[in-house]
Structures are given as C-alpha cells and as structure tokens.
Amino acid sequence: MPITSSTTLLTQRETALRLGVSERRVTALRQAHEITALPVGAGGFLITASSVQRYERWAGKPGRPYSAAMAFAALYLLSGEPTPWIDAPHRYRLRQYLRTTDAEKLTRLCRRRARTLEFWCRDSLIGKAAARLRLSAATGPLAAKFQLTDTNALEGYATADDAEWVAAACRMKINVEPITVRLRVADWLPDGDGPMPLAVCAADLAESNDPRERRAGLETLEHLLEHFRRRI
C-alpha cells in the first residue's frame, strides 16, 4: 500500500544507530516482526519509530518469544478459554509456566503473536472496519474492564488478507496522525467471534507506548495470573 505518513519513520541505518546494532540485525528484527517495517520503493523499507520504542523495552532480556500459536494459547489459558490447537504436553508446560511468571515476562514472551500497523481512518468508516476485526485492547466497551476512557479509537486482530481488505475498503492512511486504528495483523489466529479474550486485550495494552495503557494492561495480567495460580 502507498505510504502517507505524518509520524516518525526510520531508515534501516537510523534504526541500527538507535538500537546500537548492525543493519543486518535490523533486517533480522524486521523479518521476525520484532519491529514494524513498511515497504517503500523497489525493495526498500522504513521502520516505525513506535515499534522501535516498544522493542527497546525488551532488548537484551532473556527468554525466546513464543510462536503465535503458543502465545495465543498462553493468553487464552490465562483467560480461562479452551486451546484446542495445542496438544496436552504443550498445554501442561504452559500451565506450569503461568504459575511462576509475571506480567512483564509474559508480555515479552507473547509479543510475536501479531505485528501492529497504525492508521488514520475517517470516523464514519470506523464501524465498517470494526465489523471485520476481533476487537481488542480498550476498544469501545472493553475500556471499562481496564478503567480507561472509551474513545473512538479502534484496535483489533485480523489475518493479513482481512487487514488488507479493511485498510483499502475503509480508505485508511497508514502512520497518519491522529492514529485511530491499530490493526494487529496475525499470520494465524484462533477460531472465534467477538472480542479477544481478556488476557489478549491486556497484553495488547501492556505493549503500548502510552504509560496509562501499559500500566492498565500489566495490572490486569497480574490479577489474571494471581487468579490462575489460585484455581489450579
């Protein structure tokens, strides 16, 4: 999609300098969806500063991130939801991990479940976009669960094909402020309808660069972890 941006985009070299790594390492981070890159020109990329800021919080921390299937399984288990896509041994290991981890570590290990793209969308088309997404974070009525103010901002999950359709059909502009839509684009999503489970919503907020959203997400994950430890 063409890029019209009013927010900060970084070149590969600028990203490498900011993170103190090689450009080859930046390429690896981009390919692993640790940072969000937007294609420009013939084979070029620009990297969103917001995704670099999020990555900086996790750089150098121990623990290999989960695959998307395992990340969703951990967050679904924490929410008390079924996880039919993983087998019993993996489910057992996740349960054992959830008994001992904390919210910060869980957020870090689950971060590769999807990549985040940010858009401006006309208010009149927000509803059309929402109808094709599994809503998450503090979107609409979900805000009350985190004691956050309900706004017209939209956040939700979609497959790559659905995300492309939504962006085109709703005439959204990528990385243009004010950001009103955050698409969590996943290569794989669990089956289901309606909003994402509470732990997924909380993990999305815990990844936010906004301090209030981040705190609300981490606090909710901690409460869910405490409840999980009591019920097993």
Rank of each mutant, 00 (worst) to 15 (best):
S67V: 01
A144E: 07
R171K: 10
L29F: 12
R212N: 12
I86K: 01
A74D: 10
T83D: 07
Q12Y: 00
V52A: 02
L106E: 13
L94H: 09
P178C: 03
R30Q: 11
Q53L: 12
Y157S: 05
L225C: 10
V185Y: 08
R30E: 13
P2Y: 12
A168R: 14
L148F: 05
K128F: 10
W188R: 00
L29H: 03
A130H: 04
R215S: 14
G43K: 09
L98E: 04
T7I: 09
T159F: 03
L221G: 00
D204P: 01
V40T: 13
S67L: 07
T83H: 01
L218V: 11
R91Y: 08
G156K: 06
G63T: 12
E56W: 12
S5H: 13
P39T: 14
D87I: 00
L38M: 14
E164F: 10
F72Q: 01
T100M: 13
E56Y: 10
E155Q: 04
F45N: 15
E34Y: 02
F119I: 11
T220G: 08
P84E: 06
M196Y: 01
G44D: 11
F228V: 06
I174D: 09
A71R: 07
Y76C: 08
A37G: 15
I86P: 07
S6D: 15
T220K: 00
A206I: 09
L38S: 10
E56N: 01
P197H: 06
A158H: 12
R134K: 08
L75F: 03
A202L: 03
S136F: 05
D210L: 01
T48M: 11
I174F: 05
E81H: 13
A199Y: 05
R108H: 15
I126C: 05
P62V: 08
G140Q: 02
K128N: 13
A74C: 12
Q12P: 03
D162K: 04
R54I: 07
D193L: 05
D191H: 08
C201W: 06
L224T: 07
N175A: 15
L221H: 03
Y157T: 00
L183S: 06
L46V: 15
A138M: 05
P178H: 07
G217H: 11
I3N: 05
T151H: 04
E177K: 12
L9Y: 00
A32R: 15
G140W: 01
M1E: 11
L218D: 10
L225N: 02
E14M: 14
R57P: 02
Q53P: 02
A203E: 09
P62L: 09
T101L: 12
R95K: 11
K145C: 06
P190V: 03
K128M: 15
F146H: 08
R115K: 01
A129C: 09
P65I: 12
A131L: 12
Y76W: 15
A88V: 12
A28S: 13
L106C: 13
K61V: 04
P89I: 06
R229Y: 04
L189G: 09
A158Y: 11
A206E: 04
E104C: 06
L78G: 05
G44S: 09
P190N: 09
A206Q: 04
R122C: 08
Q53I: 11
A206R: 08
Y55N: 14
A216V: 08
Y157N: 00
M70K: 02
V181H: 03
S50W: 06
E177P: 06
S67K: 02
